[in-house]
Write a protein that binds this DNA or RNA. Sequence first.
DNA 1: GCTGTGGGTGCACAGTCGTTCACCGAAGTC
DNA 2: GACTTCGGTGAACGACTGTGCACCCACAGC
Lengths: 213, 213
Amino acid sequence: MTETRVERKERTRRAILDAALHLCEDSSLVALSLRQVAKEVGIVPTAYYRHFESIEALGLALVDESFVSLRAMLRDVRRGDGATGGAAGGYAGIVDSSVSILVEHVHQQRQHFRFIARERAAGPLSVREAIRHEIELCERELATDLARLPGTEEWSGDDLRVLSNLIVTAMVATAESILAVSGRPDVEKQLAENARTQLRMVLVGALHWRSKP
Amino acid sequence: MTETRVERKERTRRAILDAALHLCEDSSLVALSLRQVAKEVGIVPTAYYRHFESIEALGLALVDESFVSLRAMLRDVRRGDGATGGAAGGYAGIVDSSVSILVEHVHQQRQHFRFIARERAAGPLSVREAIRHEIELCERELATDLARLPGTEEWSGDDLRVLSNLIVTAMVATAESILAVSGRPDVEKQLAENARTQLRMVLVGALHWRSKP
DNA sequence: GCTGTGGGTGCACAGTCGTTCACCGAAGTC
DNA sequence: GACTTCGGTGAACGACTGTGCACCCACAGC
């Protein structure tokens, strides 16, 4: 029954992260006070310093944590085991399952996605930079995935990067839209269908694309 | 030399808007205090209430003002008089000049674009909704423009809307990137070129697209 | 079992916050 | 010229902010 000291500390740290994530649901990190977090956790303000030296440091930890969720999603997308079963195959199958996986993960990790979407533009400078860097990594990953797809053999590295940037941008926007309409399943279905259409349009463009020498 | 009373009031109101815009360059509206704005303007906090009843109301005014800038840009894009001179014509010419106009306007109205980019995700609820609504109007405008382009005769209204959503999303992302790298002209040139490539890819996709019945 | 480390407490401080109120004085009205 | 309107002032309030300091006490290592 007794807790070891490191367990106890880790539990409080988790509680702080969760509290911040909860408070960030309808505001931004820059409008979050150390005392609010402490009150939400149930500790005294000064005890906060035992875990983080500032709100900004908390933000960076949340970025790390959130991108664990995001990478888990990318892993699922790469495996291609979406709601459609994956039996469809081909580009259409990839598009359908990828968007399904996106929608699913946005629901399961709503707080993480919301945090990233908001702090990407509004957070402290270091947080914004950290998020931008992580997204750039995601784009690179996607670019190498795209390079393995049939039809992109003659593409330049630049074009692959530009294409994956476009796709990531569109998917980030889709995630933001889904978060914005949270609670209206019919509208959400429509957003997912729009995202699929956009991906198909982009893919049609890609298949007819020839990189300049 | 004497100022009429309404002129004087309008001048202070302008000063408040400018001060808020300036303070929002490296933070968000939700982290902005009435007193900061007042101090920046050079008036006492209570005088602020003569012009706006809250920071949120100020935000809504800034949204209106910012979208005047954005609409001016859209008008230029529609006229197609970009830096390339417009003589090129055809899709390539449209793409080149449109992106040039975007870059140009982002520079000229840096504060407005930055404000919209940030508060779109982080502002008070009413501000977020106002921005979302305005962007949706821009998408509709673009959709009607696209409908006039040769090659989209058989497109469904849905597909036109989805396509313009994709294009607007990509251009918003481009504007955000340009703001993020502010001050590095070489990187910015690259971003603009990437945006042009993305638009071309999307257009290639669109030209080979056939709407489902 | 004694000692020391470290998470958590309580108090205090100097600021800042939004908002109230009574008041001033110049521009506007009659 | 007398009267009103209204943008701006200055003091004051209660609440909240980040942070420093001394302290407590359960767990850790000896």
